[in-house]
Simulated scan of single mutants.
Amino acid sequence: MTTAPEDADALAKRRATVAQLRATGLSLREIAAELGTTKDAVYRDTQALSRDTATPPDQDCRAPVAPDILAVALPAATPQSGPATPSRDTATPTATPAVPTLTVPLDPALLADLATLTRNGTSPQAAIRRALAYVAGTYRQAWEAGVYPRDTNPVIERHSYVPYRPPAPEQAHT
């Protein structure tokens, strides 16, 4: 069964709305009432959204191009640890230290922002790290300068850009 483009657009818009309403804590029934549809339709939308943001098992770590970003999900929130293996020197089991991970629901707005940050080929992980470091650094500066109390998120109003300078072309050495 194929879906007409108008139907696909309407479905995509409804699913985006469902994701936003779900993020606010509304129940399936409340969302259905607000959208004028059935709770079963809303349930199918949430299931489709979950499938759309799941990481395929065979996905590699290369940065996706912007249209493919919808298929990217953050790693599972369970610490990864390797199997205990005997140490060569002591013959006692040692475990690989657990690495904390983070799971964030990928709502349409977050996906759009992530697509923007990865448009130039940056991996999602690197883009998130850079954005988080930028905001955290700005917060620290505002708190340390006493502009905001430490229990208040500073408002970032202005940005400063360094002018782009293309790299100089390499000259052939003869």
Rank of each mutant, 00 (worst) to 15 (best):
P86H: 04
A4K: 11
R140Y: 01
D9V: 13
A33M: 09
T3M: 14
A16C: 05
A23T: 06
A172M: 07
E170K: 11
R22K: 12
Q80T: 09
E34N: 05
T116V: 13
P169Y: 03
A8F: 06
A172V: 14
R130A: 12
R140W: 09
P105Q: 05
A172E: 15
L111W: 00
R62W: 00
P86G: 00
L110M: 11
A145S: 11
V155Q: 06
R44H: 15
V72A: 04
T2C: 02
A76G: 08
K39G: 03
T78I: 14
R15D: 07
P166E: 09
D40P: 02
T96E: 06
P86W: 00
L114W: 05
N120I: 01
L117E: 00
R150A: 11
P5V: 04
R62F: 01
P93N: 08
A73H: 12
P108M: 03
R44N: 15
P108T: 02
P100Q: 05
V147D: 12
R44G: 01
A10Y: 02
V162D: 09
A115M: 06
M1G: 15
P97C: 11
R129C: 08
S81W: 07
Q171V: 13
P169E: 11
R158V: 05
S160R: 12
D45G: 03
A145I: 01
R150M: 07
T122D: 14
R51K: 10
A131C: 06
P169M: 05
T101E: 12
